[in-house]
Computed example of a mutant assay.
Amino acid sequence: MTRPAPSLAPQSVAAEERAAVTAALLEATAQLVGQADALATIQSMCEGVVAATPHIRLAWAWFGHPDTREIRPLVAAGPAKAYADALVIERHLLTSMDPAVRALRSQETDASAVARLSLYGPWRAASKTYGFEVAAAFPIHIPNARKRGLLVFYADNADYFERVGEKPFAAFARLAEATLAQAELRAQLHRKATHDALTGLHNRGWLTEELDRTHANAERYGQRYALMMFDLDGFKAINDRNGHAAGDRALATAARLAKEETRRGDVIGRWGGDEFVAILPESDTAAAVAVAERIRARLAAVDMKTADAPIALHAGFGVAAYPVAATTIDDLLRAADAALYVAKRGGGNRVAAAPPLPQT
């Protein structure tokens, strides 16, 4: 059972409360500059508010689809954190008047008394156990149009948000929006730096770094892995006859099919032009050849429609396995490239494997 909350009646007390919350806001703003993790930043915001005033019993945040059937806090802070950790707000008739549900639906701030005589049992229990008298929910507008967010505060005085005002808490919601926007921008920049814009696959720079990591682990732990290289047969002719738009479609199609035929732990990317490279952890030559054959067959089954005539997609593949075909990254790349050359010289639309190193 909680103790009765101290009164907020004097205006001076309300002013002190506003100052404390504003100071927490300024501190959270300063943290935003150096924090890379959006959830960690918003967690710090919640902790800052409840540390600034004993009247805020709980602060929590949620992000998800606007049509979600239930709301579960993702971060929370305060003396009543245990309540948030177990909280699941299912959207139905009895919870339709919950401030979080109403704020999510209307996209406007909603402050409501927490009724001890509510028909909804969990609200009655929380009000009695944690001393909740009022809850204020602030919508968070997220850059991703398919998501929404909420920042919710619970206070122990029924007129808390009237006396102190909603503006400092609304500012926290705006700060949360800035945090999420910054995180979204950072993710976009990272994707542009590591992915190929046309195919959506990893680019050569990222593949090179991943190959370094894979090789180092293989050397350290005695693991095996394989490289697969392939490029489209007659790609220049596709561009010349059908235009670069058709060539781009061919590359995007090849990337999609190759991605579908590799495992979750495999890494595939665009090496340059119409050439692709895949890193296949824990794979030997036979396993790499099997992957290449699946991709080759999928490509050969494609009948890409264009304004002029259908385009058949074929590709040559070269595979090389560590440590069977080579023991260094450069030698393994050369071995896979040489195997690819053998496949292309043989007419394309085939898979060739690098031979094992000579026995010493």
Score class of each variant (00 low, 15 high):
Phe153Ala: 04
Lys147Pro: 07
Asn157Ser: 13
Gly131Tyr: 05
Leu39Arg: 02
Ala77Ile: 01
Glu47Arg: 10
Tyr130Val: 11
Met45Ile: 11
Glu70Thr: 09
Gly48Ile: 11
Ala103Gln: 05
Ala113Pro: 08
Ala40Cys: 14
Ala145Cys: 14
Ala80Glu: 02
Ile42Phe: 06
Arg102Cys: 10
Pro54Arg: 03
Glu108Pro: 03
Thr68Cys: 05
Arg72Ser: 11
Ala23Pro: 02
Ala30Thr: 13
Pro99Trp: 01
Val101Ala: 15
Glu108Ser: 09
Gln35Cys: 10
Ala59Asn: 10
Ala86Cys: 11
Ala145Gln: 15
Asp37Trp: 07
Leu93Cys: 13
Pro143Asn: 07
Tyr130Phe: 15
Ala136Asn: 07
Gly165Pro: 07
Ala30His: 11
Pro66Glu: 03
Leu87His: 07
Leu150Met: 03
Gln107Ala: 09
Phe161Asn: 04
Ala28Asp: 02
Ala100Met: 04
Ala36Lys: 09
Ala135Met: 09
Met45Trp: 12
Ala145Val: 15
Thr29Tyr: 14
Pro143Tyr: 05
Leu87Ser: 05
Tyr83Glu: 05
Arg116Met: 14
Arg72Cys: 11
Pro122His: 04
Ala61Gly: 00
Val33Pro: 04
Gly165Gln: 10
Ala77Val: 00
Thr41Tyr: 12
His141Asn: 10
Met45Arg: 09
Trp62His: 05
Leu94His: 07
Ser106Gly: 06
Arg57Val: 02
Leu93Tyr: 14
Leu58Val: 00
Asp159Gln: 09
Met45Tyr: 11
Thr53Ile: 04
Leu151Asn: 03
Ile71Glu: 06
Phe132Gln: 05
Asp37Gln: 10
Thr41Arg: 13
Phe138Trp: 01
Cys46Leu: 00
Asp37Phe: 08
Leu74Tyr: 08
Glu133Val: 06
Leu26Pro: 14
Gln43Val: 06
Arg91Glu: 10
Ala52Glu: 13
Leu151Trp: 02
Arg124Thr: 07
Thr68His: 03
Leu74Ile: 14
Ala100Thr: 06
Arg146Lys: 11
Ala40Thr: 15
Gly64Phe: 05
Trp62Thr: 01
Ala38Val: 12
Val33Trp: 11
Arg57Glu: 02
Thr109Met: 14
Asp37Ala: 12
Ala111Gly: 13
Arg102Phe: 08
Gly131Arg: 06
Ala51Asp: 15
Thr29Asp: 14
Ala51Tyr: 11
Gly131Ser: 12
Ala135Lys: 02
Ala82Cys: 13
Trp123Lys: 08
Pro66Lys: 05
Asp156Arg: 02
Ser44Lys: 01
Ala61Phe: 01
Glu27Ser: 11
Tyr160Ala: 00
Glu90Asp: 09
Leu150Trp: 00
Ala136Thr: 03
Arg69Val: 15
Ala84Trp: 02
Ala145Asn: 15
Arg102Ser: 11
Gln43Leu: 12
Ala136Asp: 05
Leu58Thr: 00
His92Lys: 09
Arg124Leu: 08
His92Arg: 09
Gly48Pro: 09
Arg124Gly: 05
His65Lys: 06
His92Gly: 08
Pro139Gly: 10
Asp85Ala: 14
Arg148Tyr: 07
Tyr83Ala: 03
Gly149Phe: 05
Leu25His: 14
Ala155Gln: 02
Gly131Ile: 07
Val50Arg: 03
Glu70Arg: 08
Val101Arg: 08
Glu27Ala: 07
Phe153Thr: 01
Arg105Tyr: 06
Arg116Pro: 08
Leu93Ser: 13
Phe63Gln: 09
Arg163Thr: 04
Gln43Trp: 06
Phe153Cys: 03
Asn157Ile: 14
Ala125Leu: 11
Ala136Arg: 01
